[in-house]
Design a protein around this nucleic acid. Structure first.
Lengths: 283, 283
DNA sequence: TGGTGTCGATACCGTACGGGTATCGTCGCC
DNA sequence: GGCGACGATACCCGTACGGTATCGACACCA
């Protein structure tokens, strides 16, 4: 009898329908059926009558429904009390300005829901520091992109996006459905300011040293494409901005969305962040 | 935050020592450490201070200890209430008189602890029916030995014991450290009464039709060895009775201790029995 | 009466997590 | 400074959970 199982049972008992309960629990019906059956074996009583007419609660099931609700409610209260006893907690999250994808909002919602009393400070950083100031202690955890120098950090991959070249829509290459780095060899590129992580710099320049305007943010990179005719780079996934085209680059390693934190930092709020991030980016 | 994890935490918080807590929980220390660390990530707070001086509770840990105790207590009450609502339940367990081994007492204790209000009726049966009257509906579940005709039954293996021949201590073969069936080919054997399961009969006679006195119980089989000089059979494990010797038979398939019930019988008390039996015979 | 749709159960598979053993790092302590 | 105690880490393995595909039972309807 675990709390997870009880949550399953409450869902089924309230819906009186395995399929709908499974949908509510964001899972499929067979494992739910199995879990309920195991619960019945665990408590040693039939909890639900299944018939063609539908699902109904047995007396034992009604008793468990009542008990499970209070138990789950109590568990939530315990969680709150622990959070309160832990004191006013705060966490600073660094977010690379670019990584505005589907995962982040889900993660924010999940984290807020899980730790309603934790003050989350966001520090959005531009492309000049993919670690978002982790090493300097400016943030506790970074939601960012690889690759970068990972020494002293622990990096947890959340997703990997293929990368494309950003070109003006009227560029002859923009009609191609895929490109190789060699196709862009004679173009002007962009570069990051001096002192930017070399691994990061090299990655976005396709492994070669390139010349071109200095950019600090995604928008600057895109503007450089428009105004200077340079080559831009972006992970695939989001719709390309107006007047621009994104063409997949088939010989460039995918860019990894990662969570990173300082090695050895045992702050549980960070661990929780990473756990929730993993879930948010998986679904 | 699952009840199992909370049980772990309560143990550590009470012992203030990971090693002792692990021993109390019948597990080893590393997974316990990991579970506590995950719990900390889950609730987002440090629960324990670990220092060389020892383990101490943080305020958050103290809050959780309090909450976890009530939660676990409440869970037990819920279990009781469900059992009560299920009504006065009973289960009839068939036990082959022979299978008095270490697993059975553990299983009895676990089952009684898990279902204190369930009336367990024991029906001990002799060797004439390894199914303990399952098909006739005399018992709900059988704790017995294979092999036997399994049609219409569901059989769950709990353990497998190698088998030995029982001989008089002064028998020339009794000094051997192992025997083959061929060594006993010219001996008198024993047989079960007419109508006994043929698979069972054949197994204990080493696959051959044998002549000899009819036995109905383990004791009768052993007495036949003493008084009639026949060959006896027994699973290895228990100490041999006085005046008798047991020599392993290397070419006989092990005898399986099993739980069996009527196929399709959905009685949760049976499923629970099998679950607990599996655990009891594993440890 | 046979076709059809609904719904829970079953079968099977891949992965992830919980448990194990071995070993390390750290910190008192003699 | 070596040793012992103890929690953390690394690594391996088996179970169990969640997934997809399919079945079986049953009501409903033509």
């Amino acid at each position: 009898m675990e709390l997870r199982t009880l949550r399953y049972f409450v869902a089924v008992a309230e819906e009186l329908h395995f399929g709908r309960a499974a949908a509510r629990l964001h899972m499929s019906q067979p494992p739910l059926s199995r879990a309920i059956k195991q619960l019945e074996a665990d408590v040693g009583a039939v909890l639900l009558h299944r018939s063609a007419a539908g699902v109904t609660l047995t007396p034992a099931g009604a008793a468990l429904l009542d008990g499970a609700r209070t138990l789950l409610d109590q568990a939530d209260r315990v969680r709150m009390r622990v959070a309160a006893a832990a004191g006013a907690a705060a966490i600073t999250v660094g977010i690379l300005s670019d990584s505005s994808d589907r995962g982040a909002p889900r993660l924010a919602a999940a984290y807020r829901r899980r730790h309603p009393d934790v003050e989350v400070r966001i520090r959005e950083t531009d492309l000049t520091d993919p670690t978002c100031g982790l090493r300097a202690g400016l943030v506790d955890v970074a939601l960012t992109r690889g690759p970068f120098d990972e020494t002293g950090l622990t990096v947890h991959e959340l997703r990997a996006d293929p990368v494309g070249a950003v070109l003006r829509a009227d560029d002859p290459l923009a009609r191609r459905d895929r490109l190789e780095l060699a196709d862009l060899a004679d173009r002007r590129w962009f570069q990051f300011p001096d002192g930017t992580d070399p691994i990061w710099q090299s990655y976005w320049n396709g492994g070669e040293p390139r010349e071109g305007p200095v950019v600090r943010a995604v928008q600057e990179c895109l503007q450089a494409v428009l105004w200077n005719g340079t080559v831009g780079m972006t992970p695939l996934g989001h719709a390309p901005p107006e007047e621009l085209a994104v063409v997949p680059l088939i010989d460039m390693a995918p860019s990894r969305v990662v969570a990173a934190w300082n090695e050895g930092d045992a702050n549980p709020l960070i661990r929780s962040f990473v756990q929730l991030a993993t879930a948010a980016y998986r679904g």
